[in-house]
Design a protein around this nucleic acid. Structure first.
Length: 518
RNA sequence: GUCCCCAUCGUCUAGCCUGGCCUAGGACACAGCCCUUUCAAGGCUGGAGCACGAGUUCAAAUCUCGUUGGGGACGCCA
């Protein structure tokens, strides 16, 4: 029926960091536009001057860039279009669709409360609509909404929804300070931008009939609507700051990959049979509004982590290293000094995404973080081959990049920090002879590679008639400080012969010291 | 309170539109086992759900109505 090209939009207000729910709305809009070879518009609804902040605008732009959700037009800032809205208000006024309301906010608040208390709908009572005199003083402009009848909303996800008009109040379209309000600007912009599909959160469902009235009064055709189910917190209420980390930025800083976040967000509220893994390319192919469900979903961080681990394993070694590096740098900086990695860049600039010109409105699709700073190294340990093997050794057990960096710390610091429980359990006098034999075989291992090392360790175990664990665990704790790590031979290889021997000797000396003391 | 939306394992969901193939499938999480030098990863197994009540029908998770429950909206916020 609609032959005009698809145009969708994402219209956040810059009153907070880009929210997880907003990101999903953006994703669906972006997917829908891309699938239909349409246009995706970014619009900034900043008419609330009190709460809007540049910092938040920047975060929204950055986060969308990081997620790879590029827009074709915008960002359109509503505060730059005030005259446009006023001209529409003028049209409304001319046609007699609005009237002056001099009721003060305080009065209105009072009446609202009273109405609710008496069980009446808390809508504006229309007293200024009916008055014939024209009182002085500040006034707001109210829209004359139809008083009877029913307004139907055709929702692409929910079908036909009927609202009795008597429930709908005369909304304010122009504040007494001359600023237009949301319900007006949204209608004007969606019409001006020729938006064909408004895909937004279900929290806007009740606004839709009001907006339809405005479209009609203005003689405009409403777009199609699709109201998405909300994303809920653990307590099943709408996800908000109360639930902890809810911004895209927060997850980015925790070391989640945009691939994982996108996949996760797509799957909450939408499904495609039994499938769970969706790359952006998959989503582009498979996403449909019909696949969007009606029930709100709880944000389940464990599943996000599972997806993140999945994508971490999928990344190429180079790419993984590139993305990990800022976390490693941050981690080593935090652990303070004594590291083999020379730090000369910060994480934020490292993972830098297209956060340049917020005014350059051009498509920025899934850009890969660039501008990495190769760590400078002392000695020659950190060869490309070394990094490749390090990535393979650690990627299997990391939920997030941040955790992965933490787990790799021992590779770079002068002396490891022991997990007390692990030390107490494995760095004991009984282990002394095995550690000493390990030192000898590592000294002799030729070439210094995992296979010969493994042979040597096996030989020790056979001679001493012990299990590999009895040898490997003390060695592991001595070298990594922890009882959990990648395979011990990989650990030894990554550490290098000298550092391995140094670590083992330190541990041996420490155990001996304790024996002597105790 | 009023209006609107929603209702399948703890969580995300398939199935519902176009009733029988459903003894309700998958995934995350959880438990056990296997693999194993630890931790993961991987493999196998297991527990776990159609909110309730009427009705329609030979047959209902699927259709209808009601109840209950949850959520959202009720701003000179967006």
């Amino acid at each position: 029926m609609s032959s005009s090209p698809v145009r969708t939009r994402f219209a956040p207000s810059p009153t907070g960091y880009l929210h997880i729910g907003g990101a999903r709305t953006a994703l669906y809009n972006w997917l829908y536009a891309r699938q239909h070879k349409g246009t995706f518009v970014l619009r900034i609804e900043d008419t609330d001057r009190e709460r809007s902040r540049e910092e938040y605008l920047k975060d929204i732009v950055d986060s969308m860039g990081w997620l790879g959700l590029g827009w074709d037009e915008g960002p359109i800032r509503q505060t730059e279009r005030i005259e446009l809205y006023r001209s529409y208000v003028g049209r409304l006024e001319q046609a007699g669709h609005v009237y002056r309301c001099t009721c003060s906010p305080a009065e209105l608040e009072e009446r609202r409360r009273a109405a609710m208390k008496e069980g009446r709908p808390p809508k504006y009572d229309g007293r200024c609509r009916r008055r014939t005199d024209s009182p002085a003083g500040p006034y707001a402009l109210r829209f004359k909404a139809p008083e009877a009848g029913v307004t139907e909303v055709q929702d692409l996800i929910r079908g036909t929804i009927r609202f009795p008009n008597e429930e709908i109040e005369d909304l304010i379209v122009l504040r007494s300070n001359g600023m237009p309000t949301y319900n007006l600007t949204v209608v004007v912009d969606d019409a001006e931008n020729r938006i064909t599909h408004v895909i937004r959160g279900e929290d806007h469902l009740n606004n839709t009939p009001k907006q339809i009235h405005l479209y009609r009064a203005l003689g405009l055709d409403p777009p199609q609507f699709a109201h998405l189910p909300l994303i809920l917190g653990e307590d099943r209420s709408r996800l908000s700051k109360r639930h902890g980390a809810v911004s895209v930025t927060a997850y980015r800083e925790e070391g989640f990959l945009p691939e994982a976040l996108l996949n996760f967000l797509a799957r909450i509220g939408w499904s495609h049979g039994d499938e769970e893994i969706f790359t952006v390319a998959d989503l582009l192919e498979k996403f449909t509004l019909k696949g969007v469900g009606k029930t709100s979903g709880v944000f389940n961080e464990q599943k996000l982590e599972w997806l993140n681990a999945h994508y971490t394993r999928q990344l190429s070694k180079d790419e993984l290293r590139r993305r990990l590096m800022p976390f490693l740098v941050e981690r080593l900086r935090a652990s303070g000094g004594g590291s083999d990695l020379t730090i000369h860049d910060s994480p934020r600039t490292e993972v830098a995404t297209p956060s340049d010109g917020i005014s350059s409105g051009h498509s920025r699709e899934a850009e890969v973080p660039r501008g990495e700073s190769e760590p400078l190294v002392r000695g020659s340990r950190f060869t490309p081959d070394w990094w490749d093997r390090a990535m393979d050794a650690f990627r299997e057990r990391a939920g997030t990049l941040k955790v992965m960096a933490e787990q790799m710390t021992f590779l770079f610091v002068e002396s490891v920090t022991f997990d007390e429980k692990a030390r107490g359990k494995f760095l004991r006098p009984e282990a002394l002879p095995y550690l000493e034999q390990a030192v000898r075989s590592i000294e002799e291992a030729q070439p210094f590679e995992t296979a010969p090392l493994e042979e040597a360790f096996k030989a020790i175990c056979e001679r001493a008639e012990i299990k590999m664990g009895q040898l490997a665990q003390p060695v592991r704790v001595a070298l990594t400080g922890s009882s959990a790590s990648p395979g011990i031979f990989d650990v030894i290889w990554l550490l290098g012969r000298d550092r391995t021997l140094e670590g083992l000797r330190k541990a041996i000396a420490e155990i001996r010291g304790e024996v002597a003391a105790g």
